[in-house]
């Protein structure tokens, strides 16, 4: 996190409050739909589409640079209720499996850095993985995402091996076990 970004924390705090109010419609239901726990195996894994995007500080990230790691790629937006709910579990998953070579990229669709920061700044735990900005939604379309959130798992050879459409509890034991099987201990 750059110093300039921390310095504007007050402004972002107010933005976070506004964002919370704006997202209020997400809780219109008395019972929220449950986050699920499964990963759908891809029958014939294919090479992942290109993913080269800047993060909130303008630093470029290329999925191809992570070849040799298992990578979780999550497409999301701050206004998407299940995306908001699953985000802390992505961070908990990362904390549990990063020592096994798991990497994570979250791709926000259509929003700017201030909007994303205002939301993630209020999360506990806050994400420590790169938050990439797909401002024109072209990356999302290249990955053939049809609804948010959608998450993909890329294997060490750069192939898409799992997908998860809809919100997940990523640190659920069943999901951790599925990912552990892809990240053998050296």
């Amino acid at each position: 996190m750059s110093f300039a970004r921390v310095e504007t924390g007050m402004k972002h705090g107010l933005s976070a409050l506004l964002l919370y109010c704006m997202a209020g419609f997400s809780s219109v239901a008395a019972d929220l739909p449950p986050l699920t726990h499964g990963l759908t195996p891809i029958a014939e894994p294919q090479p992942a589409p290109a993913l080269i995007l800047a993060d909130m500080d303008g630093k470029m990230h290329d999925l191809a640079d992570l070849k040799g790691k298992v990578v979780v790629v999550n497409f999301w937006a701050t206004w998407c209720p299940p995306c908001r709910r699953e985000m802390p579990s992505l961070e908990r998953l990362k904390q549990q499996l990063q020592s096994r070579g798991l990497a994570m990229l979250a791709v926000d669709v259509g929003e700017d850095a201030d909007t994303v920061f205002a939301f993630t700044g209020q999360l506990e735990p806050a994400p420590t993985f790169p938050l990439l900005l797909d401002r024109d939604s072209r990356a999302m379309q290249r990955w053939k995402v049809k609804g948010l959130p959608t998450t993909f798992v890329i294997d060490q050879q750069g192939r898409v091996i799992f997908r998860a459409i809809g919100g997940r509890e990523f640190d659920n034991p069943a999901m951790i076990a599925a990912l552990l099987a892809q990240t053998p201990r050296n």
Binding site: K146, A164, I165
Partner: peptide
Amino acid sequence: WAQFPPEQEYAVGEWN
């Protein structure tokens, strides 16, 4: 992207 998808496929456990 806030709209319900016009078309989609769901394996067991998937949803929007």
